[in-house]
Design a protein around this nucleic acid. Structure first.
Lengths: 341, 341
DNA sequence: CAGTCTGTCTGCAACGATGCAGAGCTGCCA
DNA sequence: TGGCAGCTCTGCATCGTTGCAGACAGACTG
């Protein structure tokens, strides 16, 4: 059976459609007599408002969408939690979409007919999209970007200082007396912006400490999953002169590397110290627990949602200029770099 | 500036609204001359169809929503990937909502004005909802349930055989010669249905092996996170006669337990064997790697999405009866129960 | 040449809700 | 009694799109 509409309820109660709407929304005063009749009719017909129709009239849905490459990368799952919480504070429901790190899927989002046009705004963590893709996109939904990948000033953008984060991690290893420090996760090609910033921070730290750079110690990986971290760690240990510390560009790489090292009988941190970036909970419970640089996820979420809401409100007012917004990070030292006594 | 509408484009091109619509959608044949004019106008005005309006007219959005308690529980993140993939195969985009395991948030979903009414269907993994909550819900969006929590025959429902899964895990431990086998994760109260089924499977396995049940070895936990697994493991080891194996009701509990045991100098699996349920990737890279019972997530997703799509299509045809649908599971033996040689 | 068909194109109504302007009634005051 | 204000309530237009029925012109058939 078709859902009851305002028209059905109105007919049943013998009043106008408009009055039923008023009762439902409490917009205008309605006499008690009519209210009772209308409410009875509402109940009898089990009326439920059609949100699509309401949204069409009002021009908004109250929904935001967070788009991430992969939800089963814990960093994104933890970030999602924070974004959802921030969205609620602003009165928006946040839903999460996953692109599977697929360039076509990312581009599909920006299509003329993208179903995401139903959302009032998008928070997008792009992997392969270019600034051009964004500028020529087929819909006009306000967008806030996460991460360093795209930054050319045309879009607002929240990220930690990746150079500083990588520098902090590497400097920590140097402070422990390590000298052959490897890096896992470089991506020396167009879409590897974030990785390249981390490489830059790694190099800065070495340079400031006067440690010469050995290119053989920088291992690229096409993505940031455990498996590639494990493989890269083994490659590094097979070098003629293997590293005594490894800086991984995220925690998953680090956890994979630790697993491979431990299995190969190499002690972490005694033989090789390992550190990552992301501050995921998994690293607190690994053996050994993982030292890491923790991005302030709550701050990232707050800034991103706040900025996006300003953009959305701005569509009927002054539009805030695109801004590069920095979130904080902190070093978290655990057993993978400093063994417990 | 307001977005251009079909009306604007029609005025510009000097044709009817309907013809513009035909050009946009390719529904009816349009002569080349007109098509060129219309396409020029479309481009000049940068027309983008209003999806809300289109959806209102068509009565569907092509969106499904997967609702889970917590995305940063890896099982749900991995399941989400599978559900999203299955949704795409049926031509639906799947978005993910998280309730933070909050009963109020769960109930909010079923509200008359829930924003989820925008979706064509819901796949719901409920934690605290009762069958009554569902029956009296304020919207009529088709629903498919995941997990054992609610099952009274009024709703379709996909789950593994939790009793068998728990029995398989416990039997594996018994097969290793373990005799004092503990269980972490029981929830002996109304909303703990899944946990109770796993306890039942655990007891069945002991019974079949003729091992007496020691209630002191069953540790309840209010949720299934790493921290509580760690705490429960330590409590168990403090018993006068501690266990030689622990069956945890999910992998996170098991990973937490392993971490606590290792840190306390207790060897896994030599002193205590540990097994979980969920088959999350994290267990493949932990030290030691985690034995587990793996639910067939792809099958769960396929069955859930398939069933939901049938329900949705059924709203204009015969509605399939609510069914209890079983997905498979397999035992995966790794280092936490059988040490590598 | 009339009649029919085909291929284009159009106008109207509808999806289900809300914004707006005003109608009708009542009561009050001068 | 006339005029006005205030409270309810209503009808109409509208959001932007698509479904439907039909108009119209030109081509084809007999």
């Amino acid at each position: 059976m078709r859902d009851a509409t305002l028209r059905d309820v109105a007919a049943r109660a013998g009043v106008s459609i408009r009055t039923v709407s008023n009762v439902v929304n409490g917009y205008a005063p309605v006499s008690d007599a009519l209210r009772v009749k209308v409410e009875a009719a509402l109940a009898e017909l089990d009326y439920r408002p059609n949100l699509i129709a309401r949204n069409l009239k009002q021009g908004r849905t109250g929904l935001l969408c967070l788009v991430v490459p992969e939800l089963d990368v814990p960093y994104f799952a933890e970030l999602a939690r924070a974004v959802i919480a921030s969205g609620r504070e602003h009165g928006y429901a946040v839903l999460v979409d996953q692109t599977d790190a697929d360039p076509d899927r990312e581009r599909e989002l920006l299509t003329r007919n993208s179903r995401l046009a139903l959302f009032d705004g998008l928070i997008l963590s792009p992997l392969t999209l270019s600034a051009d893709d964004l500028r020529h996109r087929g819909n006009r939904t306000p967008i806030m970007l996460l991460g360093e990948h795209i930054f050319d000033g045309s879009f607002s953008h929240v990220a930690i200082d990746n150079v500083a984060a990588a520098r902090d991690a590497t400097t920590h290893l140097i402070g422990l007396g390590r000298r052959r420090i490897a890096a896992i996760g470089d991506q020396p090609y167009a879409t590897g912006d974030t990785a390249q910033l981390r490489t830059a921070g790694y190099r800065q730290a070495l340079e400031r400490a006067g440690i010469p750079l050995d290119p053989a110690l920088i291992r690229p990986t096409v993505h940031f999953h455990r498996r590639l971290g494990a493989a890269a760690a083994l490659e590094l240990m097979a070098l003629p002169s293997p590293p005594d510390a490894i800086f991984c560009y995220n925690d998953l790489l680090a956890l994979g590397a630790m697993r491979a090292l431990t299995r190969a009988g190499i002690r972490v941190p005694e033989d090789v110290a390992v550190i990552g970036i992301d501050g995921i909970e998994e690293g607190e419970f690994s053996t050994p627990s993982l030292s890491t640089v923790v991005p302030d996820k709550q701050q990232i979420a707050t800034l991103a949602v706040g900025g996006l809401v300003a953009l959305i409100d701005g569509t009927t007012g002054p539009i805030p200029a695109p801004a590069e917004i920095r979130a904080g990070h902190t070093l978290l030292v655990r057993e993978s770099t400093v063994a417990r006594p």
